[in-house]
Design a protein around this nucleic acid. Sequence first.
DNA 1: CGCCTCATGTAAGTAGTTACATGATTCA
DNA 2: TGAATCATGTAACTACTTACATGAGGCG
Lengths: 186, 186
Amino acid sequence: MSLPHAILTALLEKPSSGLELTRRFDRSIGYFWSATHQQIYRELGKLEAGGLIRALPAEQPARGQKKAYEVLPAGRAELARWTAAAQDPKPLRDTMLLRLRAAAVVGTEGLRADLGRHLRLHEEQLAEYEEIERRDFPPEKDGAEDRLRHLVLRAGIDLETFWTRWLRHALTELPDLPGPSGPGRG
Amino acid sequence: MSLPHAILTALLEKPSSGLELTRRFDRSIGYFWSATHQQIYRELGKLEAGGLIRALPAEQPARGQKKAYEVLPAGRAELARWTAAAQDPKPLRDTMLLRLRAAAVVGTEGLRADLGRHLRLHEEQLAEYEEIERRDFPPEKDGAEDRLRHLVLRAGIDLETFWTRWLRHALTELPDLPGPSGPGRG
DNA sequence: CGCCTCATGTAAGTAGTTACATGATTCA
DNA sequence: TGAATCATGTAACTACTTACATGAGGCG
């Protein structure tokens, strides 16, 4: 039940249409809660039906027309309630770790290439986050204003830093261990 | 499509019944790919129907009877194929980061307590991982055998270390910033 | 027998993904 | 006018979650 609250947050930051939301999810909020446009349109419909947001009455709401939404007081209250409510952290779920564990049984053949590819992808993501930090949070003007947003960005930077380090380490460990179906046998 | 492969890995490590798998998911594989017993039983049925595993013909397979499964050659081949195939990393999806971003808009009221609770939970998980490392991977007998499994455990340890550090940092940043609905206003 | 636990399941609902449909606008 | 793109949506499917059902065996 996080997508509606992600949308409420985005709409409070700036009233938007479905497509604008989709683009903003690609850029900023989607860095830690991604969503496709199909999810967003469906959820906008539910939020409107539930009285948490409303369409800004600009033009006729025909198909193919831009339709912008804003958050109603009930929506802001719901977001505040959800933000403060206790929620258990989700257990880790990571396919690459699972594949490594599987490779311990069926062999590491082919896995090395994808580890290298993941390393490159995480390096790119890290570079993107660091660029955002340089642009939006330069050391001289670290006002209290955006401290929370900076905190969230730091989590992204530190997580990508972890992955790049861990993947590099994994690549040094891997070649010595071809495993049962590796070149040592086949 | 990871659950069937998680189950194949677990069954290759040791043939098991549904309940035994459920328990092992709670302990070890579930640390990075959790699953409930409902998911596991359903998936066991599919894997058996697909000819990737088979029930060990011990007793009559009546309801309420233990039923153990083992992996067939086709299952091992499928797991090897999946492990080696390229897969894109899933984008980060974290509710706490979303809540912090929301708190920047609707205020941090109530969030602080749950940050502290999450810190405790992550500290506990970290302690559990470190205990496993002491028990299963002592420095003196670091044979090449279990290096991959150790690598996976290190990822868990480093990730929990990251979260505890980040949450402590977040707690130092939070009280200065009650936000629009915090004590500064209400 | 009645109750508890073990063990295996079924059913219904929610969330997310993938593929496709349709109207409006722009531009050659 | 036809093609490309913008913008909003529908439909079908897969994965996961939550709640409940059922049989077997042990115990007082």
